[in-house]
């Protein structure tokens, strides 16, 4: 892709350049350094903020940092309690991490499309794609982790045989076993794929529209990018929220024994 970007000129070249990640390695062992870097930095930001709040956590009158952290905790806890009825030490922190991390990824989309790549190019970095959620690797990494957790909890709660029975005998009973199995497998596999692609698609399209707006004459740009950015504030929060809620729902389904 890098060579293509060099070859193409004008608008296409600009778009391709913007959507090409900074990468090293070949084939499967390619690493998208920008995705890894920005998601790690944003994860660090999330951890730093909450750690600060957690260290000073008091049941007396909370400070601003703690109040904000507690607001998020309450919000996530409400979501978890609404859809998840089991007991799990993992699920609420998992949901919090997903919500905050995805939100921060998506938030990178609100930076002007050219500013971080420009700073990067000053430092000699040729390609820089700053929004981790426009990288399928990032969204799939998260959804596949969730998928593993779904499998893990299904087996843990229902037992290996119980889970297998559920795959084989539902929803149409033992006489339609192959059909059941096929249906269930598709259902299970659809979960991580839809999670990852939904987030990726929304953010990729959003980023693309910002890039397209950036190609227009400068006098028109504000009238388009401003409303789109405002609309995007809704989208980035909503996508983070959807990812979190669906994770909770999937995991609560894994906990339910039929």
């Amino acid at each position: 892709m890098a060579t293509e970007a060099h070859a193409a000129e004008g608008a296409t070249g600009y778009i391709i350049h913007h959507l090409t990640p900074l990468h090293v390695g070949e084939g499967f062992w390619t690493l998208h350094l920008d995705t890894l870097f920005f998601s790690a930095v944003l994860g660090g930001l999330f951890i730093w903020f909450f750690k600060r709040a957690a260290e000073k956590a008091t049941s007396e009158v909370p400070g601003l940092v703690q109040a904000f952290a507690e607001m998020l905790i309450e919000f996530v806890d409400t979501q978890v309690k609404d859809s998840f009825h089991g007991h799990s030490k993992l699920i609420a922190p998992l949901a919090l991490t997903i919500f905050c991390w995805v939100f921060l990824w998506n938030f990178m989309d609100l930076f002007p499309v050219d500013i971080l790549p420009l700073i990067g190019s000053m430092m000699g970095i040729e390609y820089l794609r700053v929004v981790p959620s426009t990288d399928l690797n990032a969204t799939f990494a998260m959804s596949i982790s969730v998928f593993f957790l779904i499998i893990f909890y299904s087996i843990k709660i229902k037992g290996a045989w119980g889970f297998a029975k559920e795959l084989m005998f539902q929803p149409f009973g033992p006489w339609l076993l192959p059909f059941n199995l096929l249906l269930k497998l598709v259902e299970e596999i659809a979960k991580p794929i839809s999670l990852a692609l939904r987030l990726f698609g929304n953010l990729y399209a959003g980023e693309l529209i910002f890039i397209l707006i950036a190609l227009l004459p400068w006098s028109i740009q504000p009238f388009l990018s401003f409303p789109w950015a405002i609309f995007h504030i809704l989208i980035i929060t909503l996508q983070a929220f959807i990812f979190m809620v669906l994770t909770i729902v999937y995991l609560s389904m894994a906990h339910e024994d039929h």
């Binding site: 995705t35 990032a138 990494a141």
Partner: peptide, 25 residues
């Protein structure tokens, strides 16, 4: 394309979740 970044991201994610579960929540 899907590549090794996926693995790196999964490790980061696991670490974040572990840390949140252990020290933040």
């Amino acid at each position: 394309s899907i590549n090794a970044t996926l693995i790196g991201q999964m490790i980061t994610f696991a670490l974040l979740v572990w840390f949140t579960m252990k020290f933040i929540w």
